[in-house]
Design a protein around this nucleic acid. Structure first.
Lengths: 127, 127
DNA sequence: TCATCGTATTGTATTTTCTCGATTTGTTTA
DNA sequence: TAAACAAATCGAGAAAATACAATACGATGA
């Protein structure tokens, strides 16, 4: 009675059977993969982008900064909902904000983000 | 006793008070926004990208197609879990697959996706 | 100073997503 | 034909994300 193999080991066996040089094949799988921190950071960004309301906010911020009240109009949603979305965007580092009097103004943190959005649309259209 | 205003109307009032030309301001908010379908499609893509395991899969597919068993090794996760992630990537149009014998091979559907991933990393580093 | 205003936070109910064992499907091989 | 195999699907429980009313906060102005 041998130990039950853990999930990836069975798969490794399958690779053994499938390829002529399985070790080389597995080696390329382990080549210079991004660090766990990189992956986590990317995932945070994409999670923040994976919501229709937040995408609408970012689009509204393309041309200029906007105050919170304007973004409420854009989303047509309760103030607390909008504020929560904005916090999430801030936490992901996608927008920055400044406070003037009782108003908060939001803006895109990095114009590279706009490129990400545009490219994603291109990917979508190809699909 | 007037009707309670719906959420966005209060915000519209705030815009009235804040800006010299509120109507013009609101008009720019309504300018040529992306269609609901565009936004939904983008959100689908970003949701698919908003998961560390799926990002690792895409990274493994950068250089060449891979069979499912190889991707199991990459993720070190049960077969059904890996298969579910792959389905989600396919549904979002980010990967394609071909079947040969009992093996399924996955590949990046559109190289523009790699640009999205690289740009996102740049955004992350700026943040 | 007191009421009002724009915004942020909190608490909770709801919805969505994720995980993974079990089973099924389709293929190859003994 | 039966056994083994890779992969897909199903289903249930767990975890995460979302919506939003209620409330708190900080600034403004009467």
């Amino acid at each position: 009675m041998s130990e039950p193999e853990s999930p990836p080991d069975e798969a490794a066996d399958a690779i053994e059977r499938l390829y002529d040089d399985p070790d080389a094949r597995i080696a390329t799988l382990q080549d210079v993969r991004p660090s766990a921190e990189d992956i986590a950071g990317q995932a945070t960004i994409f999670k923040a982008l994976g919501n229709e309301d937040r995408l609408r906010v970012l689009d509204a911020l393309r041309d200029s900064e906007r105050c919170g009240c304007e973004l409420q109009v854009v989303l047509d949603a309760p103030q607390s909902t909008v504020s929560t979305h904005l916090r999430k965007l801030k936490e992901a580092g996608l927008v920055k904000s400044r406070k003037k009097g009782k108003w908060s103004y939001y803006r895109i943190a990095d114009t590279a983000l706009l490129d990400v959005l545009d490219l994603a649309r291109a990917v979508q259209e190809d699909a």
